[in-house]
Write a protein that binds this DNA or RNA. Structure first.
Lengths: 291, 291
DNA sequence: GATAGTGTATTGTTATCCGATACTTCTTAT
DNA sequence: ATAAGAAGTATCGGATAACAATACACTATC
């Protein structure tokens, strides 16, 4: 009875995303003459692998992608022929192939924010010696697109593209603070607010209050909301219209830090960084966030 | 006339891959009853962004994906509705969205080699302080799936998933050294051997000789074949069948190193690492490579 | 203000994708 | 061992969903 049933950070971060695999909306797109359903189904098969399973059999794909056996067969086969899935001839199970990384390279190269932010993130890291991340909003999640690990942490960079729900992360709330109220409301509506830890804030009022506070001071802090022992401070990057296009965060442990010290020692450097990045996007402090 | 027309390393690594975008094979798959053409075309649209262009208009997509205007329109639209492409309403051009990173996370989590190799790569890095990479073969290219930058190099990790042709890289030739001759021949046949630098080895005989040498000593070195000033040493990881499933390489500059010193100071540690990794895959030295 | 180029919307036709079914192979329990 | 069941594979006629042609709208450029 000690640990209640909190969802596992890693599993469910993508698990929440798996909601995207919903079948029912079926013919909501019927109206859309340009929508190609076959492509959607094929991508649903690829998405079946987001759950983190190392490999899937045909029946697993049926279940996870909500397709009947024939469809799963055809799409999995096609993806295999094209080289995005590999099939173990022994087990007859499918697994993602290295070729899948092609997509992420395409994205990395095309995102102008990543290109321009890089050096400034490194500078922030060198000033503070803490882990620094650049994140962007994907639906109701935050996705880490650049990751600089802490100086004396493990050298293996955390996975780029990993997602965490926006509502309970500093980055997420920082980004939401740079969006109009109706958009924030829509995102929170879509989020399923399950707690990761006993400190995860799931109360909508409290979340909105913290977003409002972030609008005033320019940054926000989350304490052990996703991972026990983790403190995070984050601030939004704003574009010329005063709208957030991403966030910068720093993470550290409760062993070495307190929120108070973070406000004093880290917040100024963080704010300096996002101010520069925002101004590079054309943001001028006058531009107000439409609320 | 000083610099001849070498292809640019970055552009053409993926450019070679763009060969996959070939249109003509049109109905070679006609035979394959399970092949869903619509999915292939949709993925061709995604692949159009591999060229590195930050954004593409509809006509660019037509050209790069070899689709007519209607098809490009339908597939780009579908990908936009699904959230994989974003459209700038001003310019009406499409760009990859952050959601594309989902695929790479799926791959990263599912690849068992990456999971198990991580700590050993870190150890190799700490012993040698050099940049260490884990790579896998994708068609005729090598794709870097784990990257540990050199101690005092730029902190921003190089992009994971980036590709370089196998024929002219140490990693590539190391991996090929763990494949049977007919497979090597097939891969070299498919490669278009354009030089990156004046030292790129494009002579088939010479390439085969170096692969043969790698089979004997267990590693191979490439000198400035992809990038001027870059030296690379690499060795293959073998599975239980004695077949290579990936490669480990270390890169350094001609300023600080010579091939001779690499053989003396780095090769032993590299060989130790790949020996461990191979044995974890079930490889036992007795198992010979079928030639 | 004319022209070429690019993007959007619509439509009838038919090729393609569908999904039910029968067949084969592998698993597992008795 | 053997049989029962599950999982995966192969086939095929038919209807639907993808197709490609075309006409329209926009916007740059000269």
């Amino acid at each position: 009875m000690g640990t209640a049933s909190y969802r596992i950070a890693r599993g469910t971060a993508q698990g929440g995303h798996a909601g995207q695999l919903r079948a029912p909306m079926h013919r909501a797109q019927r109206e859309d003459a340009l929508f190609v359903g076959s492509l959607e189904k094929g991508l649903r098969v690829l998405n079946a692998f987001l759950t983190g399973e190392p490999d899937l059999g045909l029946s697993d794909i049926c279940r996870l992608a909500s397709l009947d056996k024939s469809a799963a067969q055809r799409f999995a086969h096609t993806l295999m022929v094209l080289g995005y899935l590999e099939k173990d001839p022994r087990t007859r199970r499918y697994r993602p192939s290295t070729r899948m990384l092609d997509w992420s390279v395409a994205y990395m190269r095309s995102d102008p924010l990543i290109q321009v932010a890089g050096p400034h993130l490194v500078e922030l890291h060198e000033q503070t010696r803490q882990a620094v991340n650049l994140s962007r909003l994907v639906d109701t999640d935050v996705s880490y697109v650049v990751r600089i690990p802490a100086r004396r942490a493990r050298l293996l960079s955390p996975i780029v593209g990993e997602r965490v729900p926006a509502f309970c992360t500093a980055s997420g709330r920082a980004i939401l603070s740079g969006r109009p109220d109706d958009e924030v409301a829509a995102i929170l509506d879509r989020s399923d607010m399950l707690p990761f830890t006993e400190r995860t804030i799931c109360d909508r009022g409290e979340i909105l209050a913290r977003i409002a506070a972030a609008r005033r001071v320019g940054y926000t802090i989350a304490e052990e909301e996703c991972l026990p022992g983790e403190l995070t401070i984050a601030a939004p990057i704003l574009n010329a219209e005063g709208r957030s296009i991403g966030g910068v965060n720093m993470s550290m442990t409760t062993r070495d830090w307190t929120p108070k010290r973070m406000r004093i020692e880290l917040a100024p450097a963080l704010l300096r960084t996002v101010t520069i990045l925002s101004s590079l996007q054309g943001y001028r402090p006058s531009s107000a966030v439409p609320a």
